[in-house]
Structure formats: C-alpha cells, structure tokens
Design a protein around this nucleic acid. Sequence first.
DNA 1: CGTGTTATTGACCAACATCAAACTTAGTGG
DNA 2: CCACTAAGTTTGATGTTGGTCAATAACACG
Lengths: 239, 239
Amino acid sequence: MDRLVAKLRTIAELPRAAEQALLGLPFRLKKFDENADLVRQGDRPMECGLLVEGFACRYKLVGDGQRQILSFHISGDIPDLQSLHLPVMDHSLMALTPTTMAFIPHTAVDQVVRAYPEVAAAFWRDTLIDAAVFREWLTGVGRRTAHQRIAHLLCEVFVRMRSLGLVDGESFELPVTQAEVGDALGLSNVHVNRVLQELRHSGLVSWKGRYVAIGDWERLKTVGDFDAGYLHLKPALAA
Amino acid sequence: MDRLVAKLRTIAELPRAAEQALLGLPFRLKKFDENADLVRQGDRPMECGLLVEGFACRYKLVGDGQRQILSFHISGDIPDLQSLHLPVMDHSLMALTPTTMAFIPHTAVDQVVRAYPEVAAAFWRDTLIDAAVFREWLTGVGRRTAHQRIAHLLCEVFVRMRSLGLVDGESFELPVTQAEVGDALGLSNVHVNRVLQELRHSGLVSWKGRYVAIGDWERLKTVGDFDAGYLHLKPALAA
DNA sequence: CGTGTTATTGACCAACATCAAACTTAGTGG
DNA sequence: CCACTAAGTTTGATGTTGGTCAATAACACG
C-alpha cells in the first residue's frame, strides 16, 4: 500500500490519518505472467487492483481483431479504480511484464472513501487525470504525425517516471515492444520501427532493450509538440 | 437545474433530498454565440458550467493549428465539472450553436457533494463515463476506418440522444458541420463528405441540415462496430 | 438579392499499411 | 557454455486509405 500512498502524493496532499487508513487497507496479492490479462472487458470486479510490481496496460479490441492500447501503468496505479462506480469493465487490462497486483475489496475502498473526503477527492482527481491523458492521446492519434506521436509518448513516459523518482539520469525502464507502441499510437509495428530509427539517428533518444535514454530533451519536446500541463502534476514535479 | 437532475437520472439513482439540493444550487446564466469559447485551455475556473441550452464541444489545438474535437455535449452536461479537482483547464470548450450556460460556484457544488455522498458518486460516475467515451473514441481513431468511425459516431449520438428522450422516431438534431465531424474523428472534411455520401447511398442514414435520421439501425451498428456498453447507461435506457 | 458558410467534386499526392523475409537478441535446456 | 527457439527488430517492395489543393455548387440568412 505504500506504493499507493507514494503515487497519490504526486497528485494531492493527504492528511496523515487518511494515509494511515490507506496503509491499513486489506488486500490479496496475486502474481501474473507477462501478457496475462489482469481484468477482462465485461468483468464485474468486486475488488480494485493496485499494481504493486511490473508494467501493465489497458486495451480494447475492435471487430477485426486489432488492438488499441489505451494507457500504460506502473507501480502505484489502480487502473480499475473505476469499477467502484462503473460495475462492468469496458476494456481489459494486461501485464506487459511479470506483475504482482494487490486486490482490495470494493467495500474496503468504499469505507475509506466515505470516512476521508480527501481520499475521495484524491481518487476522483486521479481518474480525472486518467481522462486528461486519454484526451491528449486522442488528439495525438487524431491530429499528430507518427513522428510527433512517438516523440510525445516518450516525453510523457519520461515525465511520469521522473515524477515517481524512477528516472536514472536521462534513462528509464520501458519494457514495451515496438508493436505495443504501435497499438498505443494507432500505427503499424513496421512504421514505428522506421520512425524510431530516425529519432535515434537524430540523437533525440536511444532505446536499447528495456531502457530508453533521452538524448535531447528540449528538441524531443519540440518534435513531440509536448506540454506536460495535461498530466496535472503538482508544480514541484512538473519541471 | 432540472436539466442536470434529468441527466443524472440517466446514469444514477438519487435520493429525493439530494435532488432537492441540486435543484437549489445557485447559478448565473450566460448566453454565448455560435463558435464562442465557453472556457479556454489554461483557464482556472471558479465555477462549473452546466449546459442549459444548445450544443457544445471540447477541443484541443495542436502545434500546427489543427483541431481535435474531444467530445460533444448537450443540455444537462457539465463539461468542466473536472475543474472542481483539476484547477487548470487542459482543453477548451466551445459552442456549436447559440448556447446558454448556468455557471455554478465551485463552493456551492462542493457543499452539495460533501453533504450528499450519492451526489459525489453520481458526479464521479459521470466523469468516469466521460473517460470511457474518450477511450472508445481513442480506439476508433487509432484502429477503425473512416467508414467505421463515422458510423460509430452516429450510433453513439443516437443512443445518447435517445436516452435523454431527444429522438423523434429515427431522427435527431445534430447541428454539426462535416468539418467538425472530421475534427472529431481525425479525418479531413473532404473525406468525411465522401464517406457520408456512401453511407447515405447505402441507405444507412440520411443527414439533411441539422437533422440526422437513421435508415437501418442494425446495419449501421454493424458497420460502425458499435456496442453501447461503454456508455454505461442504466439497463432500461441502453436497449 | 448579395454574401458568407457549408457541401461537393476532381486531380493529385503522401503517409502509413501490408506482406514477406531476413536478421538479432534474449532465454532455455542440455 | 553452446546450440536451439521464440520473440522482437529490421529491411525491402508494393499497395491503399485518406490528405491536400482548388474550384464550383448549394444553402441559409439578413
């Protein structure tokens, strides 16, 4: 649960008592293999899943079987928090790496939320930030070129990782395949590969295996038309 | 405020007292011309804007000036409800027709939300449904063809209008230009025009001026790969 | 009736998809 | 430690959806 508190601290201030209540939440740990579904579209979860360890993503499938990845998630996120108020899942969640989740009963979350309006506000704020990120992705997929989209995604992940203290120098872990990037940005894996090569050759980024390093942050931001405002980070973390 | 209550009834059950509290909310009416901005990206609103009369949309601009429309809104919606918890707007709102808004002070909304957890839950649920729609649009723009996207959008608007009792037979008002549809779906106005002609010729829809009529609902749903689940309507309204 | 917005058409073009094959790399079991 | 395998990356050739530009036609409205 300390991961959860750490995450919420990046977006809101919580009174000590509320943090204690969160730390006391009951949960059930469960491990998942890479590529396993954590929750499926159509499910009616009775618990919220806190991502403790690993990387995950939300996704939807369309009629002809293509996949759209909707968001990436890391330690501290509760990607299905919405199930508290939207009983049936409208998308699925899957593990991008081996993952461990802490499932917290809805009833327990509900109690904390009722007892501490600040927690309710923080959770609500968290889901609102989710929505803000969807809007940004939507404008990217709708109106930006492949180059811009890829640069933008790298900027976003970099800033989010940095706000959680997960960046080492200029580089951070991103255990995502090029095909997955394509599914997130509405591109083919082939095109992602080609654009990535150009970004590398212009020295904007390097990406080897699971690790991305930013080569030229200012230029990458420019190329990606990136402005971190939509992430609604606390000012201290946005720099 | 009765528009607001009517809207919330489509997504949640509220105790009588809570509805009364909502009806008693203070507000300030303001009229806007077609194409006027209601709220701008970067603003820090002190009020929430309830759309009383007219059609509006959320949008963002990208670096080179192109526009992405993020959602359409009708009477009863509070498109900037999020400003309660996200102080600075990450997108703009504009009127698609002459519009009247009722601006309700954040402080007043906050009081009702604290006094009635059911209202807090209903509002939260409303913003979660917003997010669900963004996800669906994202998958459409990312992974569906122009035909599918346009058919899907018409399905969505039809179902939402019907849930509010705003459909007359098979037809409903949609005061949106083809260029605006393009900006919503990540397409050019020219291409929207061509696809729309095909949809008309195959008898799926007719669209004259401000009014759309569904010609073949079943086929339109199939073409648009549409499933209303993501709208999270109460079962009685989803049919 | 003008006048400005919106819809429609045609010609041409570019970004990105698709297909298929070869090449790398990271694991895995012997 | 090495060969083997599967996943991921890279490359090339080719195709298509949908964009851009520019002109014309239809409307809506004062």
